[in-house]
Amino acid sequence: MSAFLGAFILIINMSIFYLVAFLSIVFSLLVIFSKNPVHSVLYLIITFFTFTVHYILLNAQFLAIVNFIVYMGAIMVLFLFVIMLLNLNRDTEPMHSLVIKIIGIIAGGCLALTLIGALKATLSYKVPVVVTKSDLGLVKNLGKVLFNEFLLPFELSSVLLLSAMVGAILLAKKESNAIN
């Protein structure tokens, strides 16, 4: 009975994964292809939501909720705020020159190449990845790992964020002085 239930849960899990993965790809394509910038941002929000579902399926609750708060709740609100404030529309959008389009294609191609290369590198691992601790993503375990094994990179990245914040304030202040 329990073996049957386990198999059933596995099947449901896999089908949810495939459904959500499909939705992530569809919505990220819509981000690129929709003409209206506000629609783009809204599709991006849905894409981030599908990522949250992926994290939940991986039992990484903390990562899921942080992704939810930081990306969906904070960064995307700011994105939407800026785009609404500028009120970009299809008719006000400036025409892109051919040079910009070619540069865009080259940059995108480079990114795609890197991603494909990275994916190919993972293929060389013959042994499938086995998660030994399925509750690694819970708050307590994540905190222990972050503050023991990865303390230095963690603190360094926080200093990096702080310097970025100070830099942004400095830049904003300079501008207001120039106006005065």
């Binding site: 903390f62 909720i65 709740g73 708050v139």
Partner: peptide, 12 residues
């Protein structure tokens, strides 16, 4: 086990 953050997320 992240209930408090969940509420914060929903609010945002």
């Amino acid at each position: 086990n992240v209930g408090l953050l969940y509420i914060f997320g929903v609010v945002s």
